[in-house]
Design a protein around this nucleic acid. Structure first.
Lengths: 169, 169
DNA sequence: CTATGTTCATTGGTATCGCCAACGTTAGTC
DNA sequence: GACTAACGTTGGCGATACCAATGAACATAG
């Protein structure tokens, strides 16, 4: 008999009873699982419209903070400047941004969002809103806010001093 | 110096005022940030004792469910059988598991946790408990449970049917 | 005006992780 | 004895986060 479980589904899903207790108790695992799934959900949704995360993040930074050099943009959008190059190429190919040399400083490129870039951002924003709605579907409005608040607190806390096994509890 | 913000810190940290609102509103980003940080925290802590995630997860599965073949173990520990090979090699090198051919089925290896493996698991468990404590430090007991519960609900919900932009609101 | 050091965009590379495909071996099945 | 399936293992792919080095342009000091 061998009670063979049907393999073939993916590893990021919890398997309930088959999962060791010690593992289920790890917050990092739970948060990691959830992150993987939300990441895939938005990644899939964005791919469906020919975009990916960095597209959104860069367009958003441009829309909210105005034109910027690539390095300023890299800082704001939290994308490595190395990786930003490819993203900007793609965005330029789509006509969503313009990359113009800065006359004041010839090293710099000034990145500007175009009108169609603004429309594109709205489109991606809507796509991601759908994803967010899907993700938080089982939660009430308050719970959603709670989750946000809790994660934010954990997150900003972790952004602080690095963990040292000795220090603290 | 042009009021340049000091670059050099890492991208996974939120930058507050410098971060576009649209981005901050994305749950997937928040969860992703948190996941990255918790993952690194535990990854660092485990590396400090010469282990990594799969070590813990595999030892835990062995301890809770007893000896198993590699494929059963792969299922329980949620590690791809391809990747499990290396993990078991390392664990065997440390003397924490034994890999013995199954006389009943010569294809199979029976993986058994050793006594020192049990001790190793306890060690890793303690390391991770410290990490968990650090992660959830800013939360009260109730909030910690809340976060767990909320993430679990989101997570199991996402494990269900795949997101389709058309279906549902 | 040359020399030095810094900033900019860009190229290339590393490490890790989740994941899949294919192989040789061994078991069950007709 | 031929087929099919499961086992452990090898090797690789693709994405992501990250770093290092380069060449052009700028700034400043002597």
């Amino acid at each position: 008999m061998l009670g063979a479980m049907e393999e073939g589904d993916e590893l990021r899903f919890d398997r309930g009873a088959e999962t060791p207790e010690r593992i289920k108790a790890q917050l990092s695992r739970l948060v990691g699982l959830t992150a993987a799934q939300t990441a895939r959900a938005s990644s899939d949704a964005l791919r469906a419209v020919g975009a990916h995360k960095d597209h959104f993040v860069v367009l958003a930074a441009l829309a909210e903070f105005g034109p910027a050099s690539q390095s300023a943009l890299a800082g704001r959008a939290r994308v490595y400047k190395s990786d930003l190059v490819a993203v900007l190429n793609e965005l330029a190919d789509g006509g969503w941004i313009r990359r113009t040399p800065d006359p004041a400083d010839k090293r710099r490129n000034v990145i500007t969002i175009t009108d169609s870039g603004v429309r594109r951002l709205a489109e991606l924003d809507q796509v991601l809103a759908g994803v967010n709605a899907h993700i938080t579907a089982p939660l009430t409005r308050e719970e959603r806010d709670q989750l946000f608040a809790l994660l934010n607190r954990v997150n900003t806390h972790l952004a602080g001093p690095r963990f040292r096994p000795e220090s603290g509890a």
